[in-house]
Design a protein around this nucleic acid. Structure first.
Lengths: 232, 232
DNA sequence: TTCTCATATAATCGGAGTTATTATCGGTCA
DNA sequence: TGACCGATAATAACTCCGATTATATGAGAA
């Protein structure tokens, strides 16, 4: 899941990642107060500015909460910005990968059909062309190739974009993460896209003829069948 | 939409909010590079640490991107973490409130029915009790009261919690925002909860008898009818 | 064209003073 | 005697400051 690269730039981001991962791994538990500023400075060997920016990052993602006199405490998982791509990448190292993948699918199952309907209704011609382009790349690429996987992911992301709903865009990272896990698994099982290629095409054509309900149904079919293949 | 209060604590957060709002309002457009560090220090009258932490906040929310030699540039809206409660509160001051509200509803329409189904399937007895408690508070409170609105919001949030999917929790802020807008509007129109109370009860009982599909259908009905009342 | 180098800018550093929150203690009232 | 409330002090985060370092870009030379 090496999707994110740019966000790791900078010393504060790296330190925030180190601490963030330790939190998702359970090494640092909720309620626990981590060492005070002065001690962490000595431990990490960075400047106050850098540490403070790192903690500020963790704070905006809901991982920690700093109060005078009390120290900096780890917050419970329910406060985390789980949809943040960076947070998602931290969780990628955690243990409960199966549960994670299943929960990702549950989100896809609720979001993508609606996105398909919206894309059919209000997507522009250019939007639809972008979706078709992704589909073409997907079907032409030889099975098992990185390129095909990327095209598959792109297909789904283009639909989200075409829906023209600003709240759908941040969910792209979830979809991307879920697909990065499931596509290789699916391909290994059926030696290629198998029936999913036709299912993708069904979504595409429904969107192109602006049939919202058909697009919704087709998307539901695709994701549900993929879900079954991955989790039974 | 003064839902968020705690997150405004601290000088960096306030400054980040000032700049963030100017971005959502379109005063600062995408691609634009904002003044260099030294100039902003003079303008804002704060220290380097504070300004840097403020910019770090905006950066983690996808609003800006800082590069040496190039300056700090405003990023396009598609990179914003729109689901972040703080970002949501910034957008609350923007102009296209109707479009915003409609898009919020589209998300609810896709998320909440699924959450209801999951709550029915895997919610604990305690979860179900919490949902019922919210419903009772909602039905007993006199119409038009703040208390009733809060109970209504709580009802929906409890369902999201009961679904036991970590990615649903960050969406709570969206649901809360959408409800804060729509409930008062709905109540003003029909002089109280009207038919929605019965619709809430339908969701509740379906969840309690662990009938996932019925819960999903009931939630869809409620949200769709509310949607129609708000947008026609 | 390609490489090198100067330069502007953000990134990092470390120390000191300030502010806010909490815990403790002392007193008061039931 | 017990519980409750208000002033006080201690502690940790918060803010400020000026200097140094790293890096990306564009200009100029080979």
């Amino acid at each position: 899941m090496k999707v994110i690269a740019r966000e790791d730039r900078g010393l504060p981001a790296r330190i925030a990642g180190d601490i963030g991962r330790r939190i998702t791994l359970g090494e640092l538990k909720a309620g626990e107060t981590l060492p005070r500023e002065a001690d962490m400075l000595a431990t990490l060997g960075v400047s106050r500015t850098t540490l403070r920016e790192a903690l500020k990052i963790l704070s905006t993602k809901g991982f920690i909460e700093a109060k005078p006199r009390l120290g900096t405490r780890v917050r419970a998982a329910e406060h985390w910005n789980t949809l943040d791509p960076v947070v998602l990448s931290w969780q990628g190292d955690a243990e409960d990968q199966d549960a994670l993948a299943e929960e990702l699918f549950e989100i896809r199952l609720s979001i993508e059909p609606l996105a398909a309907r919206l894309a059919a209704r209000r997507g522009s011609a250019a939007d639809h062309a972008a979706i078709r382009a992704a589909f073409v790349r997907m079907s032409q690429a030889q099975a098992g190739l990185e390129e095909a996987i990327e095209a598959d992911i792109d297909f789904h992301l283009q639909i989200l974009q075409a829906a023209h709903n600003r709240f759908l865009l941040p969910i792209s990272s979830v979809v991307r993460a879920a697909l990065s896990i499931s596509i290789p698994k699916t391909m290994a099982a059926s030696g290629g896209f198998g029936p999913s290629l036709a299912q993708h095409e069904a979504i595409l054509t429904a969107i192109e003829r602006r049939d919202g309900e058909a697009a919704l149904a087709a998307a539901t079919t695709l994701i549900a069948s993929t879900y079954k293949r991955n989790f039974g």
